[in-house]
Structures are given as C-alpha cells and as structure tokens.
Design a protein around this nucleic acid. Structure first.
Length: 312
RNA sequence: CGCGGGGUGGAGCAGCCUGGUAGCUCGCAAGGCUCAUAACCUUGAGGUCAACGGUUCAAAUCCGUUCCCCGCAA
C-alpha cells in the first residue's frame, strides 16, 4: 500500500514516526515550504521535513497544493492512501480524489465536537474533562467527513495545551496504526451535524484576560492558550504574558475590583477576579524573559491596589 | 537588511537624557532578637556596568560597530 503523508506541525510527528517504524511504504511526505520565520527572518523548515529527511523519504513542499503542478506530482505517486495530519493547507476535491482508497485525517477532538484548527485549545479553554482523537475520511468541507475511529482521553487538571497536544498526538498515532490494519473495508459513520461545534484558529486577542471572569475560567484560559497566543493582560502600559496561575476560590473579595492586586506573597501575586482570585506564579513582561512571580516582585515594586488591565 | 524593548554583584530592577564615589528590592554568609519563623535588627561577601573601538582630564552614562535576549508582525 502506497501512502502519501501530509503534515507540517509538531502534532504530525508521532503519526509519521509510527508509520515509518511500522514499515509502511511512504512514497512521499508533503509539508509546508520552508519559510522565513522569527525575529531575524531566518529560513526554517518544518519538523516534519526534518524527520522525513532523516528517514530518507521523498519530500514535496508545494506553495499551493491545489495547483496543476502539485496535482501532476501527486498523481504520479499513484498513492493508495493519503494520510493528512495538521498539514496547513486545504486540499481541493481534485486532490483528494487522487488517492485510490481514500484520504484520511487525524483530528484532535471527538468529532463532531470542535471542528477547526484549534480543538485542543478550545477543549481546555471550555474546561472540558474529556477529549480525544478522531480518524475520519476527509471530505470537501473542513472536518466534516465521516468518522472511521475514535479514542477518548481524560484531561487532567494540570494539563496545558502543550501537554495535551503531546498526549493526543501520541494517541492519534496509535489509533492511526490500528485503523490502518483494516483500512480497505472500514465502516464510515456520518457525523451528527446537530452536535457540531467550532474551534477556529486562535487569534492573538483570544488570549486577552477578562478579569471579570471566574478564577476557574481564567485558569483554563491560561493553560488553554499556551504556547501561543498565551493569556495576557497589561501592566503599566506593557504587555504582560501570564504563563501560570493557581486558582484561589475561597478568596474574600472585600472591596477589591476585578484585576486588582489584593495581596503580594513571597512567590505569587494574588489578583481579585470576577469570582474568587487567582495567584499569578509565572509571567513575562514585554521585552524581558519569562520569570517567576518572586523574581518579578523583587524588581518591579509591585503594590497592593495596582490593577492589571485588559487594555493598554 | 520588517517594527520595537532590553543586556548593570547570584535573581529582578534604578541610574543613562543633563558624563565626575556602583544604588534599590530579594537571595547568600555571619551575628543578634525570639518558645519559634519565610518575620524583625546589625554587619558582611559578591560587579571587566554584554564585547570591541572612538570622543574626553574623566564614560554604566555621549558616538560607532558586533554579539546575545525579549515583545510585535508574518
């Protein structure tokens, strides 16, 4: 069985690794082109490309996967199966039909819940206790194809989007290998459209902290938006990224307003919020590196009564 | 050469504009107080002020170059 693997981000790595280790015939790895990235616009390639190179696989990096050239290239591979994992481009129907058996995709949620680019983040931001991975047949509409297999995963209280992504990508890889055993005659289960929810790509502004919300909601925002955009607010007209907080539910609010510093501990800053309070443990002010609350307090003359804002 | 902030004892910062004795909070060490403490008081150690070059009687401070870190944008 000839497989063409499409993937670009971190999430795709365990799946590709699993396929390689299990000895599947990967005729080509398609990934996003090398791009100028970062502060000095250095050229960098995707992790998937690095892995494929190390395994000696053919790599294809089209600017536009749906162009005539790309279609010609993919057709020439005579692939039986397309495996698409966090690739970053939407494949046209013409491209999808180039695989003889079908194109399949690993999605990091229990579809039809959380269709879209950021399912892991939304599961955390919404405070879900359970999520999972889904393998489905790719259809024209994004994440709407019929489901082939699913696996659940409990979300821990300490999980962040980073740890959960790691767990789900592993789980997804396992499920992929299992599913491939019998891929030629699997059953397809159409998604229940009524239960569908969306998890669109995050924007920077999705990380902005609304201090009117409850301690639990803010905790979930902090862990759900890592590593990007990260939860943030403004302090003395500077962007302050919040990396880690603890919930403080039994907080006596008294006269503190939302976002106001209520107490300064040795290793944390207690901030009154809509319901309860949170203790900021790790943060990063604009222009500086990430630091613990203790370090931040030592250098910034933080006072009780100062307010973390949601605007500059 | 995308835009912007920064590099000062172990950590975090002030000082720089307007050159002239190295400062603050914390940590560390010793001593004191205390039934006791992450509390309080006293004392102390620890710095090529990122690097190189220039201006000057004199540079952390002004000028030039390089290296490194971070925020934004993509």
């Amino acid at each position: 069985m000839k497989i063409v693997f499409f993937g670009s981000s971190h999430f795709a790595l365990p799946a590709l690794e699993g396929l390689i280790k299990s000895g599947f015939n990967i005729v080509c790895v398609v990934t996003q082109p090398d791009k100028q990235k970062g502060r000095h616009l250095h050229i960098s390639s995707t992790d998937v490309k690095t892995l494929a190179d190390n395994a000696g696989l053919a790599v294809f990096q089209p600017q536009d996967i749906n162009s005539d050239d790309s279609v010609r290239y993919l057709k020439a591979t005579a692939a039986d199966l397309f495996v698409i994992v966090a690739y970053g481009q939407i494949l046209s129907e013409e491209v999808l039909e180039l695989s003889k058996i079908m194109p399949i995709n690993i999605h990091a949620s229990l579809l039809p819940r959380y269709r879209g680019a950021a399912p892991i983040n939304y599961a955390l931001i919404n405070g879900d206790k359970v999520t999972g991975v889904t393998i489905m047949k790719v259809s024209r509409k994004m994440d709407c194809g019929p489901v082939i297999s699913q696996k659940e995963l409990q979300i821990n209280e300490e999980d962040t989007a980073i740890s959960l992504e790691r767990s789900l990508s592993q789980l997804g890889a396992e499920l992929l290998l299992e599913t491939l055993k019998n891929i030629k005659n699997v059953k397809l289960f159409p998604q229940d459209e009524l239960k569908a929810t969306l998890a669109p790509k995050l924007r920077k502004s999705d990380g902005l902290i609304d201090w009117e919300k409850s301690a639990g909601e803010i905790y979930d925002l902090v862990r759900g938006t890592l590593p990007w955009p990260g939860a943030f607010c403004y302090y003395k007209s500077k962007l302050l990224k919040i990396y880690s907080v603890e919930k403080f539910m039994l907080f006596n609010k008294k006269n503190f307003s939302c976002g106001e510093i209520a107490e300064i501990l040795k290793d944390g800053i207690v901030v009154a919020v809509g319901k309860g309070a949170v203790i900021i443990k790790q943060m990063q002010i604009e222009g500086k590196r990430k630091m613990t609350a203790a370090e931040f307090i030592a250098g910034h003359k933080v006072n009780i009564g100062e307010i973390f804002l949601s605007k500059k």
